[in-house]
Design a protein around this nucleic acid. Structure first.
Length: 196
DNA sequence: TGCCCGATTAACT
DNA sequence: GTTAATCGGGCAA
C-alpha cells in the first residue's frame, strides 16, 4: 500500500512541490488517478491570482499549506490548486492533468465521454471528472473526501512554459511526466528534463 | 455601477 | 486552425 501524503508535504517551496507531485495519486471520494501535469504559481508571479494581494476569492492561497484552492475559470470551468509553503506565501500548484486509474465509470458518466485520454486532460476537465467545485474550496488534502498517495518508482519529469497566460508566459513553471498520453498539451522538445 | 477580460473547453471549418 | 459560451474578480469612475 502506497504511503499517504500529509499536509506537511506541501510546506516547501512551490517549485519543489510542483515537480514532486508528478506521479502522486489523487483521489476524491475514491475517484481519480496519477498526476501527470501541474503548474506552479507564487504571489511574486504576475500571473498568480494572489499577485495583487488577498481577496475573498484567493483567501485560501494565503492560508496554511496542504489545502485546496478552487476557482471558476472563464465563467464556466472549475480549476483546483494545492496550496504550498507557509502562511502568507500565497503560493499554489494548479492541477492540469491526471492519468485516470480509479473510478473510470464515474468519470466517464460525469464527462459524458468514453475516451480515457480526454477524461482529465486539462484543469477544467480534472475538476469535472473528479466532481470538484467551489464546495471543495478550502478543503484539507489529507482528510476525506481527499486521499493523496506518494508515487511509487521513478518518474521522468519535464518542465516548460505554462499554458494560457498573457502575463509571465515565458516562465518554465509547468511540470509533467515525460511522454504521458494524458497531458493537456505535449511538452515542446526544448523543455528541460528533470530526472526523479 | 460599469466595463474588460481571463490559470478553458468543445464545436466548428 | 478559429471561435462562441459565460460570469465573477478587479479596477476605474
Amino acid at each position: 500500500m502506497p504511503k499517504r501524503l500529509s499536509r506537511s508535504f506541501f510546506d516547501r517551496s512551490v517549485h519543489e512541490v510542483a515537480p514532486d507531485l508528478i506521479g502522486v495519486t489523487v483521489l476524491v471520494s475514491g475517484v481519480g488517478g496519477r498526476l501527470v501535469e501541474v503548474e506552479a504559481y507564487h504571489h511574486t508571479d504576475p500571473a498568480a491570482h494572489s499577485f495583487r494581494g488577498r481577496t475573498e476569492r484567493n483567501a485560501v492561497m494565503f492560508g496554511p499549506p496542504g489545502y485546496l484552492y478552487v476557482y471558476l475559470s472563464y465563467g464556466i470551468h472549475w480549476c483546483m490548486n494545492f496550496v504550498c509553503e507557509r502562511d502568507g506565501s500565497a503560493s499554489a500548484v494548479l492541477i492540469r492533468a491526471i492519468e485516470p486509474t480509479t473510478g473510470l465509470p464515474t468519470m466517464r458518466r460525469r464527462r459524458g465521454l468514453k475516451d480515457v485520454r480526454l477524461l482529465c486532460s486539462g484543469p477544467g476537465r480534472v475538476c469535472n471528472a473528479l466532481g470538484v467545485t467551489r464546495a471543495n474550496n478550502g478543503a484539507a488534502l489529507d482528510a476525506p473526501p481527499f486521499e493523496l498517495f506518494a508515487r511509487e518508482g521513478e518518474v521522468d519529469v519535464v518542465t516548460g512554459p505554462r499554458i494560457g497566460l498573457t502575463k509571465a508566459a515565458d516562465l518554465p513553471w509547468r511540470y509533467g511526466e515525460r511522454g504521458s498520453r494524458f497531458l493537456s498539451k505535449p511538452f515542446v522538445s526544448t523543455a528541460t528534463l528533470l530526472y526523479r
